[in-house]
Design a protein around this nucleic acid. Sequence first.
DNA 1: GCCGTTTTCGGCCCGACTGTTTTCAGTCG
Length: 583
Amino acid sequence: MKVNRNMTNLQIAQLLRAVAAALELTPGDNRFRQIAYERAADAIEHSSSEAKDLWDDNELASLPGVGESIASHLDELFRTGKVRHFDSILKEFPPALFELLDIPGVGPKNALKLCKALGITSAHSAISKLEKAAKKGQVALIEGFGEDSQAKILTGIIEQKGRSKRLLLNTAQTIADSIQNWMEKIPQVEKINALGSLRRQASTVGDIDLSVASDDARAVIEHFTKYPQKSRVLEAGTQTASLTLPNEYQVDLMVQPSQAYGSLLQHFTGSKHHNILLREYALKKGLSLSEHGIKRAGKVVQFESEQKFYNFLGLDWIPPELREGENEIQLALTHKIPKLVELADIRGDLQIHSNIDVEPSHDLGESTLRELAEKAKQLGYEYIGLTEHNPAVSGHTEGKIEELIKKKTEIVHSFHDSIHIFNGMEIDIQPGGKRALPDKCLSMLDYACVSVHSSFRQNKSDMTKRVLAALDHPKVKFFAHPTARLLNEREGIELDWDQIFDFCLKNGKWLEIDGWPNRLDLPDVLAHEAVKSGVKIVIDTDSHSADHLDYMRYGVSVARRAWCTRNDIVNTLPLTGMRKLLC
DNA sequence: GCCGTTTTCGGCCCGACTGTTTTCAGTCG
């Protein structure tokens, strides 16, 4: 592991987890110190701010789980690029050990045994050395290991190699639907739900989690392990089972009888961090929580609904999107959980690409204005906005560009229907901050949004100036897919978000949540920060065909995870309200 | 090592599954 001053949150989390693993292997060490390091790792990995920025503002210890001691170690890390205390703990163990922890099923104790028995020391190619040894049958000979655990290590290595990417939310939904259909073929399945990060609507999903209500868990699990598209069955017990799909994605299933289904939903929805906090809260009331129910004085109370489960604890029901272990439990206790925006609140979609050919700089849409309007009416919208990309700058004179915009404007204005069409445009922000459309053309439009489609790696300060310059025009209403990230493909750009929020707030600009499944941008944590600052959000789909308008549900999911209410979202306004904002 | 609606000291979430044991340790979510 390379330790340096510029570590990302994920890298720091991995460093802290390595320390936790080393502590676990240190004889006589306090088990809870180890847990403390793991919690600090979780807190940093899930923080909405870069740890280094928090350190700059002397706010590291504001992260729950990061106290005085770990904060001072991180201070040393950011000042000097290393942490002597961590070094002294880690140097007792072969670097290879920490690599082996990546293999599912291999924990600190077994990793150490493997390193010692097989003589694997360096981090470099540690996993492939283990793989070779296992294939030669050497692992089965080590004390405490056998043929089965050797085979398990080999499948674990396959899994580790194949699982570099997380599933996009919409893909996960499709897979879950297919398994759900399979499970519903047998009568013993009374209820079935997809839970975990999918139910919490995280932008990407690691595992697919399913729960079933049934009095015959055996039959349910047996049927599950016969799912036709499975690759391998990882485990199958009396209440839970796991299998993998051909692309190494894992599916976990858990079964409880109907009368205890509420606690199962709660348990399996997570997040892990939410559950830990909830159990700690319950413990103070003398209650112990599990997927079976709530244990009070040795007796388990069962719950058929999740609502009853939370109410029994004196809490309001908490929407799954908010169960990430922030302050949702305290708010549920004092009846302060906000009413989150819903799909039905949305009145229109302001980033749609039609097939009106303005000879654009990027992809043209596929659907006609008529097709888009019909689809939007089906969704119950009052308005949509067409935002084709600006005409390509190269190969067009300013006169030609003007002509193209004029032509498009005439098409939009001559279209009459019960749904209102706003005449917009998505404009590239050039590397220097200039908009890729002459201001003369802007005056023909009802509005525009701006976005970054090139030079993604500028430094934070230049990038921030670039974006603010482009936003600074009365017709420019919002900043589209603001981080420009592509999930599993491209990191987002670097911006000084406080400056962006501040500018938006002062100048009435909005930030977009783009519902396109591999964008989902703004990301939930940043959108949460934005609305806390008072910045308004517009949720769009970035549709390039009429079918894509259905992606609105994913944009709304991001907004819900960002704690947005209807008031935070401008396109919950009816047409009259939106007209005032745009014209 | 962290933290406070019983606590600044004394606690720290809970259970399932597997493999290798012969009653439990390790790992996971």
